[in-house]
Simulated assay, not measured.
Amino acid sequence: MPGSLSDEILSSWQANSQSWITTIDQNEIISRQLATNDAIVTAIEQHNPSRVLDIGCGEGWLSRAIYAPHRFVIGIDGVEKLVSNATKKGGGPAYACFNYEDIRQGKLPSWEPFDLIVFNFALFEDRATFTLLNQLKQLLVPGGHLLIQTIALPAHEFSGWRTEYWRSMKTNYPAPFPWYYRERDEWKKDAQQNGWKIHRFTDVVHPENKQLLSWIIELQVAF
């Protein structure tokens, strides 16, 4: 993906950071409360990891939700205001400010490997996504897992770029941004071509009307 689109995504999140904090603090996204928050927490806890890296952590809700005294959790995000808010809220995890280009360029600290790395609705790019994920292979212990929760495309929709205008939000968001949506088959193909195997591919559905809300994709490095 051209660098300008990566920059546009990051700039949008910087502009929208306070709006996002308000949205999460006030529980304004109903699908998260009904299904997707519990789904990603459950997927993480199934592995009982001792070291977790939460990438694109935002204001840190997921890092706090999975933190336990026996577990090291660190959340990173490219938006300083979100990282500062997460740090202020505390709750046990550590936080640091790194953007996705920092990761692609190998600028993360020399952390000990993690049992689990998670992206919760935090992957927005097309080809650059797997350049990012491939850079993280060295940060996973042998047999470790990478979990992705992402918006699911209905069967009649195709992969491609969409623009997120935040129209469903109660809070005003000043900046739209581009988001690349992948079909299920494209996730599978791209994972295989980049040296990942899919451990599990889970549909997350609305508990009442059974509408498909998201996918949780669990990857492992293919040896």
Rank of each mutant, 00 (worst) to 15 (best):
A191S: 13
Q220A: 15
G90V: 07
L212K: 03
P176W: 05
F98N: 09
D190W: 15
Y100A: 10
G78R: 09
Q105C: 14
E101Q: 14
L212E: 02
A65E: 08
A86E: 10
A68V: 05
G78N: 08
F158Y: 05
H70M: 02
S31P: 00
N194P: 01
V141K: 15
E186D: 14
L10Y: 01
N85S: 15
V73D: 10
Q46M: 03
F114H: 01
I30H: 09
S17L: 12
C97Q: 14
P93F: 08
H156C: 02
P207Q: 07
N172Q: 13
Q149T: 05
F121A: 02
L139P: 00
S84M: 10
D25A: 07
L82Q: 02
W13S: 03
K81W: 01
I44A: 00
N172T: 11
A128G: 12
E186V: 04
N48V: 06
K81L: 12
I217Q: 02
S19E: 11
I74E: 04
W161C: 04
G90S: 11
W196N: 07
N99K: 08
D25R: 00
T87Q: 15
A152F: 13
W215V: 04
Q18M: 09
D190F: 07
I40D: 03
F72P: 00
P207I: 05
G92E: 09
R51F: 11
Q135N: 14
H199E: 11
L62D: 00
I217C: 05
Y173A: 01
Q192S: 14
R162D: 11
K210V: 06
K188I: 14
G60L: 01
K210L: 15
I198D: 08
D102M: 11
G90M: 11
Q211R: 13
I148H: 04
N48C: 13
S50C: 06
S4R: 12
H70E: 15
